[in-house]
Computed example of a mutant assay.
Amino acid sequence: MNIAVIGATGMAGSAIVAEALSRGHHVTAVSRHAQGSGNDLLRTVALDLASLDAVADLPQILAGVDAAVLAVRPSPGSEHLMGPMTATVLDAAERAGTRVLVVGGSAPLRSPDDPDRLLIDDTRYIPEAWRPIAGASLDQFQVCMEHTRTRWTYLSPSAVFEPGEDTGGYRRGTTTLLTDKHGQSRVTPGDLALAAVDESEEPGDDPHITVIGR
């Protein structure tokens, strides 16, 4: 299949590109600073989602793509761009008729022991220093919820998403944060990529999902 990964050089995006290529998929890797590729399955495209060019160019990039994965993370101080950039992708996907997997944040999830509490308000999992990017992911999720014309799925990673030793698998949940037997919630880019490509290959019915390392 043909998969477009937007934000292809970031921590999540690069892992998803690698996983998709390892399964033999054709990948269009979209990033601000695209570089050439010696892989026949990989096409690289330079595009800044925050630019006006994205509005015009992205529908054409997504045309003929079976699934798109949005995996962008704004730099500190640019968190306010997350919502508008997500809207740009969803609008383009609607025009192209492409479904989208949005790799976002854990803030929109429910606390594991308080279903009425969003994770962004649970300092055990999201400390004060993380609130700017957590707030951006909550804005992003709201943009998705308001975009009813595009087929999208929102993938929330665990509370801690960082490089480490992959488990080679994952557990999948929906709207509530998953934790291990020690109460920890962690997932690596490699394990998240497994879930992202699985979901792109065979999308489920849940609009909001989450994963944790196996």
Rank of each mutant, 00 (worst) to 15 (best):
Val102Ile: 14
Thr9Lys: 15
Gly213Ala: 13
Leu58Met: 08
Ser106Gln: 12
Ser78Met: 10
Asp198Asn: 07
Val160Lys: 08
Ser22Leu: 04
Ala193Ser: 13
Arg131Ala: 05
Phe161Pro: 08
Asp40Arg: 12
Arg124Lys: 15
Arg23Gln: 14
Val72Ala: 03
Pro84Thr: 02
Thr167Ala: 09
Ile6Trp: 13
Thr9Ile: 00
His208Thr: 01
Thr86Glu: 06
Ser106Leu: 05
Tyr125Phe: 15
Ala195Pro: 05
Thr9Cys: 01
Thr98Gly: 09
Gly13Glu: 11
Leu192Met: 08
Leu178Gly: 06
Ser22Tyr: 15
Met145Gly: 14
Asp206Asn: 13
Pro108Leu: 08
Glu19Cys: 06
Pro74Tyr: 06
Arg214Cys: 00
Thr88Ala: 04
Asp53Ser: 13
Met85Cys: 14
Gln140Phe: 02
Thr86Pro: 12
Arg43Pro: 01
Gly83Lys: 12
Pro203Ser: 10
Thr28Ala: 15
Met85Val: 01
Glu79Ile: 01
Phe141Thr: 00
Pro74Met: 02
Asp198Cys: 04
Gly183Tyr: 03
Lys181Val: 05
Val5Tyr: 10
Asp48Ser: 13
Leu21Ser: 07
Pro108Lys: 09
Gly213Asn: 04
Pro127Gly: 08
Gly169Phe: 03
Pro59Ile: 00
Leu70Ser: 06
Ser137His: 15
Met85Lys: 03
Glu146Cys: 11
Pro203Ala: 12
Thr188Glu: 03
Ile212Lys: 01
Asp91Gln: 10
Ser106Ala: 15
Asp53Phe: 10
Ala136His: 05
Val72His: 11
Leu192Thr: 04
Leu101Asn: 09
Ala92Tyr: 10
His25Asp: 06
Ala12Lys: 08
Leu177Thr: 04
Pro203Arg: 11
Ser111Pro: 00
Ala46Arg: 10
Gly169Thr: 02
Arg32His: 07
Thr88Asp: 00
Gln142Pro: 00
Leu81Ile: 00
Glu201Lys: 10
Thr188Met: 08
Asp198Met: 02
Thr167Tyr: 11
Val55Arg: 13
Glu94Cys: 11
Cys144Val: 02
Asp116Arg: 15
Asp116Asn: 13
Gly36Trp: 08
Ala34Pro: 11
Gly36Tyr: 06
Ala46Cys: 06
Ser37His: 07
Ile6Glu: 02
Leu47Tyr: 09
Gln140Ile: 01
Gly24Ile: 01
Tyr154Leu: 01
Val30Trp: 12
Ala159Arg: 03
Leu138Thr: 01
Met145Ile: 02
His25Gln: 08
Gln142Gly: 02
Ile126Trp: 04
Ala136Tyr: 04
Arg99Gln: 14
Gly183Phe: 03
Trp130Ala: 13
Gly190Thr: 00
Pro84Ile: 01
Gly104Pro: 05
Ile120Glu: 04
Thr123Lys: 15
Leu81Arg: 14
Thr86Gly: 07
Leu21Lys: 03
Ala4Val: 05
Arg131Cys: 00
Asp198Ser: 03
Leu118Glu: 11
Ile126Ser: 03
Leu41Gln: 14
Arg172Gln: 07
Leu41Pro: 07
Thr44Ile: 08
Ala15Gln: 05
Ala129Glu: 14
